[in-house]
């Protein structure tokens, strides 16, 4: 791996960590698990066009591990990992399928996948299917927050292209 690439990936990880830190400082709007903005996903979406899947996965994994250590509890690692990796998978597949267009749609479906992964992890951990009652609420919140992060990415991306961050 070239030094330039390592530095770029480290930069993106730091950016994602800043965003998760910022988000953890915001007060929870709704007292429901899983309803959050998911600002860190902006970084994943931003990287989709210029980086290879394994590089994005690396940044994503580092971000999840570090943000859990810094801002969360160890138990929440399970939820974050399940949600984050499922979201990453959906984003990568959709980016390939839509050949890079409709970033907002990719973001919405990624957010939905994140919430679904988290709920499945919660069902596995608590062993109670009652948790599935949150699914409709998390569906709506996923669509709204995905819309927000997707629009953010759409406005940021032109500047990133201008910087010429080819690895």
């Amino acid at each position: 791996m070239k030094t330039k690439l390592v530095i770029q990936l480290a930069f993106f990880t730091a950016l994602a960590l800043c965003l998760s830190g910022l988000e953890s400082m915001l007060p929870a709007l709704v007292p429901i698990y899983g309803v959050k903005l998911g600002l860190a996903n902006i970084v994943t979406l931003m990287m989709l066009t210029h980086y290879k899947p394994y590089q994005i996965a690396l940044v994503c994994l580092c971000r999840i591990l570090l943000s859990t250590l810094l801002f969360g509890q160890i138990i929440s690692l399970t939820y974050s990992l399940a949600g984050g990796l499922l979201c990453l998978l959906v984003c990568l597949v959709l980016h390939r399928l839509l050949s890079g267009h409709y970033i907002v749609l990719t973001s919405i479906l990624g957010a939905l996948a994140h919430n679904l992964g988290q709920i499945l992890a919660a069902v596995m951990l608590t062993l109670s299917p009652a948790v599935l009652g949150y699914l409709p609420i998390l569906c709506i919140s996923g669509i709204l927050t995905g819309l927000f992060t997707g629009l953010c990415t759409r406005f940021i991306r032109p500047y990133l292209n201008r910087l010429g961050t080819q690895a």
């Binding site: 399928l97 050949s99 409709y102 919405i108 409709p136 569906c139 709506i140 669509i143």
Partner: peptide, 27 residues
């Protein structure tokens, strides 16, 4: 081809939104 996929996925998202709203109302 990507436009077709996009259209299909947009419809999917709309259906999901509608479905969750209806299920919340029912609940």
């Amino acid at each position: 081809s990507y436009q077709k996929h996009g259209l299909f996925l947009t419809i999917l998202v709309c259906l999901l939104l509608l479905g969750s709203m209806i299920s919340i109302c029912l609940f």
